[in-house]
Write a protein that binds this DNA or RNA. Sequence first.
RNA 1: GCCAGGGUAGCUCAAUGGUGGAGCACAGCAUUCAUAACGCUGCGGUUGUGGGUUCGAUCCCCACCCCUGGUACCA
Length: 473
Amino acid sequence: MNNKFYITNAIPYVNAKPHIGHALEFVQSDTIARYHRLLGDETLLLCGGDENAIKNVQAAEKAKRPIQEFVDENSAIFHELSRKLNVEFDVWQKGSDPKHHSSSQKLWELCLKKGDIYKQSYKGLYCVGCELFYGEEELDKDRECFEHPGKKLEEVSEENYFFKLSKYQEQIENIIKSGEFQIIPDRRKNEALSFIKQGLKDISISRSNERARNWGVRVPNDPTQRMYVWFDALNIYQSGVGFALDEKKYNKWWPADLHVIGKGILRFHAIYWPAFLLSAGLNLPKKLFVHEYITVNGQKMSKTTGNVIDPIPLIEKYGADALRYYLLAKVSPFSDGDFSEEKLKETYNADLANGLGNLVARVAKLCERVILKLSPTPKFSEDYKKAIEGFKFNEILENIWNEIRKLDQQINKKEPWKIKEKEKLKQFLQSIVNNIINIAFELKPFLPETSKKIEEQFKESKIVSQKPLFPRI
RNA sequence: GCCAGGGUAGCUCAAUGGUGGAGCACAGCAUUCAUAACGCUGCGGUUGUGGGUUCGAUCCCCACCCCUGGUACCA
């Protein structure tokens, strides 16, 4: 009965510190992984650092730091965030890891052998100041880059390697349409399909050393070129489980059962990635879950507006589970969700302190008068399974909170503090406590810390009241 | 411009071709087992705008406005 379940979180760019959007995805992935572990599946959750992008080099230069040191440090901050959120990544695969480099070179060689990689010149607008190519939309009104106003861009052409994406148009359309490669929700699936329908063009998958600032994965047998960051970044999903490194491990885990990503990188995962794999003759991932973004007071988060939210101080102030709860319950998995500290605080007090926390506290106190006989056998209901497997995190939590409200109503109606007969009181409390234990179980994937505390408190037949789970703020 | 999704109470969202619902916030009542918590009651909406179909539309059709995403080498 033991299935394996391999799930990946998108690997964040490490050119800046993590923001609350990263926390959202971490928490979603972790919740799914925890659920599968509870089902008894052998589960592996991977994340890592996308460290080979030119943007990292630029950011390091700006910070006047050696590039490797810079990406190591930033990558570590992301990893640290995951720990603070109680997000358990089994593998943290760094893009700058030499093992990952050799694994990616192997992927390249397989595509090359298939005849899908060829050389061609690439033309674009080049900023000498940044040593970068820019697209028209990335430029200001004078068609100059924002870093170097007044500096004219040059039309430069360069020999690059290209990948025959066009060759795989039909195949990719079929695997998406048929559901062999499932994209959730439908809106994103349709978006990918309509992109394919426009006709796929071949893509450049390498840069010159100069342009790449001698950073990134070397192209096999060509000392002048480095891989385009997405070619190797996607391969982190494979190198992290041993592709071209540890055959046994790779065969055990690959293909991924689920990739979790944000809407901004749909194309790379829905189209490029399966194409690279098809070319290399490797298995395809089974499912892609695409979440949306977090806005701040209705506005998009961006460095220029200066409204980027750092999750770490929030965790310190409210606790990991409080932030997890907000992100899973109050942010829709399928549409943009808004965040503000005020809303977090409101939710904390209303749902966690007054709701769950208060229920647990009042019941524990009532239980001090009796000794209970508990025989809970919590398990996931079919509705629960269906919802979580459809990524409807908010729906599940809403149901649980309806249950909490019902228990509060039951207690008010029965007035157990007035019951004199111990047997009667015991019977009533047993049923309430069993329900609480069930709630704690259902919360396991979502709020691991809280769930554990509740289970501990209601484990013994002699229950005593304890410190509040969520003191009001 | 084109394609997709969306515009419903202060906020977040649900609903159905037939007299608009929930949670939060707010106000009042009640109460102590509990974290001045829980419960009950109330306040609150001409369902983006203008037309049309229909006995009747928030839900169907048309036009327009606004928001979000995509529209390739850019998370």
